[in-house]
Design a protein around this nucleic acid. Sequence first.
DNA 1: CAACTCTACTTGTCTAGACAGGTCGGAGCA
DNA 2: TGCTCCGACCTGTCTAGACAAGTAGAGTTG
Lengths: 241, 241
Amino acid sequence: MRAQDSLLPAEPSFARVKRYLKQGLAEQRWPPGTRMPSEAQLVAQFGISRMTVGRALKELQSEGLIDRVQGVGSFAAALHRVSSTLTIRDLQEEIEARGHRHRAEVHHQAVERAGRDLASQLGLSASSPVFHTRIVHFENDQPLQCEDRYVNPACAPGYIDQDFSRITPTRYLFRHTALWRAQYTIESALPTFQEARLLRIRRADPCLIMVRRTFTRDAVITLARLVHPGGRYQLSGEFNP
Amino acid sequence: MRAQDSLLPAEPSFARVKRYLKQGLAEQRWPPGTRMPSEAQLVAQFGISRMTVGRALKELQSEGLIDRVQGVGSFAAALHRVSSTLTIRDLQEEIEARGHRHRAEVHHQAVERAGRDLASQLGLSASSPVFHTRIVHFENDQPLQCEDRYVNPACAPGYIDQDFSRITPTRYLFRHTALWRAQYTIESALPTFQEARLLRIRRADPCLIMVRRTFTRDAVITLARLVHPGGRYQLSGEFNP
DNA sequence: CAACTCTACTTGTCTAGACAGGTCGGAGCA
DNA sequence: TGCTCCGACCTGTCTAGACAAGTAGAGTTG
């Protein structure tokens, strides 16, 4: 029935429509902000049903390539944002994916009483107990990250008894808590005196610092400050519509 | 007909199914890797058609919350990566969204001959002409970004004649080229002598540096080095399944 | 025991309609 | 002129089926 009755599986209709529209967008056939063909036009052009055309358009919309307005039409997106998925992986996984060796040194592991600021960041009342670890992660014996982490005991009661030279905190928490939401900020700053010593860099060497908070549906699981020596670590990513 | 015949618009069926499944995932009713209800089961449970259930599952899959395998079933995703969409907006837009004033100082704007490295990064032959601009962006008269940019003349011939105190290079290029792909890396480092002077910071002040390359379908459009004073600029984002 | 077949179940894709709800411009009216 | 109303057109959602294609396990056969 369909054109392509050959060996390789025929391209689904909705994919054909998507490809047609993407191609046109790449060629500026519909410059940003202008009107694109309506569902009805595409139905007629491709000889397929509206559900199928609708699926193609809906997917393009969720990819951010077009904007759709009920009652008005579909429009080529301005594409004035370059957005890309920044994936934050477990550092151990990342190092091993590069074929390198990961090692962790635990410098601190204790139950402490939260100060006012920390307690409010974790959604606890002041001076309630929190778990605190400070761990340095090495890639092939070169220090790559200093991880200062506070954990809400209610979310991971077993946390404080782990041997973090064997399992990373990130991995442990992924396995034993129901992650629901995460927030992060990334900035550049100088390390503290202690961080510089642990990372074996000078205090004047700039660092990439990520502060991350993760949540279950109702509570804060953990607050982590991850400090990376500037020259040794970089985030990278790609955007491809 | 449907339960909710009230004032506020009823929640669409596919959204109800999504909410039900998300809730269950958050409560670990289906721990990572285990089997979730099949389409047929959800059809029976909610009394709706398979297309509608399928839409809910498809969207959860594209959000990375579940894995689906034809002939086998749907499974709760491992969720062992925190991934989030890092959106890189035009700086002027970002500043104005904060309700602040944007201003740009153009310090350099010329046609130059590309050196070997630069030429290869732009996909040009050595010593071909390239456009080069250096612009400092201010938020409320405080320098926020030093933008060093090389542009492929073939992609944006009019670039070099623009008045970049009136339109940012990012915005100009978005409007006049067909962006197809972008790559970036983010790292922390010290500014060059010149950058420190333009940003009115000391050479020892750490900076967040983003290097970005953008492409049309076939060629490199531009290579930009964006330097931000560490304390004044941070990337932030959120992940929410 | 190994290889094959058959069957039940799963997801993937698609159709031809339907109704709802939103937008916009023009016709007609005050 | 300014107003309202109506109809054309658009997207949003949904149904009740259909066939295709992949998987896994049970049963059969050599």
